Simulated assay, not measured.
Amino acid sequence: MERLSIVYFIFATGKANGGHYRSLALTAEHMAKYHNVKIIVLGYTYSHIIQDAPVESQFVYFNGLNISSALRKIKACIDGNSILHAFDLYAFFIVRLLRLKLGNKIALTKCGGPNPKGYFPKVRNLVLFSQEDFAYFSVIPRYNSSKLYLIPNRTEDFITDTTKVEEIKNRFNLHTYDKVILRICRISRMYQKSIVQSIHLHQYANDQGCKTALIILGNVQDQGVIDQLKNDLPDSVFFLTEDRYTANAKEVIEVADWVVGTGRGFMEASAKSRVMFAVSMQDDLPMLIGTHNFDQAFAFNFSERIIFEKQHIVDNRIDIIKLFSKAEHEASVKKQSLVWFKEYFSIQGAIEKYGSMYKDLLDDTKDDKDLVLHWFKFIRANLGTWYRELRKLVK
């Protein structure tokens, strides 16, 4: 196997601990077994997830205006033979500029989220995590000459931090409950719907006679959301927001019996053979995932945009009751969850696909107008960050 030089790029701001940072860290770690790999973090903060990854990495401050200085620092450590692969739109802006100067082969990964409603850059090599995105870009004339690669998000098995799990169990007296539900996400308006559905699941299970606790685990990004959510909640709903638990939240998944998951979080919970729920577009309860509806959820990368069949929504409440009324049914669901992890979510399958892709990349085209539009997109998206950074300096 030819050993390639691959440089990954990602843009970071705030705590920089979202799922796509973990996806990149894991992908780079495994690609480094076969190729020369480096990660360059652009933006305002050096993501601790990338720093902690067993791969060479570098931070370059970039705010959209200091283009020359950022390019100068990056060019000092790469050459025209390196493949440049961005894991978000903002990092891809710098990658496009580097291609113009050095002639590199380049690629972009759209890690998830809804289909773009506004500007999305021209790109010849585009990696997509979901069938939803693949179907969308396949019919857009702008990408007729592009290569689209469907490489779903992947994860790997990992070690549970039993000390933290016991801490949480003792802190919330979880041994007094029949079932524990877990939702791991940033506490913000973006994930409010999934949190609300988790609360409804908790309420429904309790109403049906199953004494259930719910843990919402994640960083608080919008205090107004958590204040609103806490109104009139029972004592058996717990918010866990300390960095000790949120920094690597997957380590405590086994504190729960049931997990309401999205994207990468769904896959990580399946690795621990949990009962899995996905957010439903049509109902106030999350959907219990089984063999009958797995494909629908997988097509949308287990996002909050899944549209389930009407009969599945009707049957969902009965299926939930079976979880705690028939022990063998819950055991079967948990077993199937682990099967999905091994068949669909393991990282090794993705590594093989990336290796094939890098050998077959198309040359990107020069489009000055689109590059300017890309820069405007970056500037507009970063106005809020500029304001917050300026306030810090004033203080």
Results as ranks from 00 to 15, higher is better:
residue 250 K to Y: 14
residue 310 K to A: 07
residue 72 R to H: 12
residue 192 Q to C: 14
residue 10 I to E: 04
residue 327 A to M: 07
residue 165 V to F: 08
residue 209 G to T: 08
residue 268 E to L: 07
residue 391 R to V: 03
residue 133 D to C: 08
residue 12 A to W: 05
residue 359 K to D: 11
residue 305 R to P: 02
residue 186 R to E: 06
residue 130 S to W: 10
residue 386 W to E: 07
residue 131 Q to E: 10
residue 339 V to K: 11
residue 387 Y to K: 13
residue 11 F to G: 01
residue 95 V to F: 14
residue 53 A to I: 08
residue 102 L to M: 14
residue 378 F to Y: 15
residue 81 N to P: 02
residue 51 Q to K: 15
residue 93 F to Y: 15
residue 262 T to S: 15
residue 329 H to I: 04
residue 167 E to Q: 11
residue 27 T to C: 11
residue 158 F to P: 01
residue 333 V to L: 06
residue 49 I to H: 13
residue 118 G to L: 06
residue 177 Y to K: 09
residue 125 N to R: 05
residue 364 D to F: 00
residue 348 Q to M: 04
residue 92 F to H: 09
residue 14 G to W: 02
residue 230 K to Q: 12
residue 282 Q to Y: 05
residue 340 W to N: 11
residue 86 A to Y: 02
residue 167 E to W: 02
residue 278 A to V: 02
residue 355 G to A: 13
residue 308 F to A: 01
residue 120 F to Y: 12
residue 56 E to W: 09
residue 258 W to A: 00
residue 190 M to Q: 08
residue 392 K to A: 00
residue 193 K to A: 11
residue 339 V to Q: 12
residue 280 S to Q: 10
residue 333 V to T: 01
residue 29 E to Y: 02
residue 160 T to E: 02
residue 357 M to Y: 04
residue 210 C to N: 06
residue 343 E to F: 00
residue 388 R to E: 10
residue 330 E to H: 04
residue 241 T to A: 04
residue 237 V to P: 01
residue 295 D to C: 07
residue 102 L to Q: 06
residue 91 A to V: 07
residue 68 S to F: 12
residue 379 I to E: 15
residue 272 K to I: 15
residue 65 L to M: 11
residue 325 S to L: 09
residue 20 H to C: 08
residue 291 T to F: 05
residue 17 N to Y: 14
residue 246 T to M: 06
residue 65 L to P: 04
residue 224 G to H: 07
residue 27 T to H: 06
residue 339 V to H: 10
residue 203 Q to S: 12
residue 358 Y to M: 12
residue 3 R to V: 11
residue 182 L to A: 11
residue 255 V to W: 15
residue 17 N to W: 14
residue 344 Y to C: 11
residue 76 A to M: 07
residue 112 G to L: 06
residue 339 V to N: 14
residue 265 G to N: 09
residue 39 I to W: 06
residue 85 H to E: 02
residue 344 Y to M: 08
residue 288 L to G: 00
residue 62 F to N: 00
residue 227 D to S: 15
residue 336 Q to W: 01
residue 377 K to Y: 15
residue 172 F to H: 09
residue 247 A to L: 14
residue 89 L to I: 08
residue 238 F to D: 00
residue 139 V to D: 13
residue 266 F to V: 07
residue 104 N to V: 01
residue 195 I to W: 12
residue 29 E to F: 05
residue 381 A to T: 09
residue 365 T to P: 09
residue 290 G to S: 10
residue 288 L to F: 10
residue 22 R to S: 10
residue 345 F to I: 02
residue 366 K to E: 15
residue 270 S to P: 05
residue 115 N to V: 13
residue 98 L to Y: 02
residue 233 L to R: 07
residue 262 T to V: 11
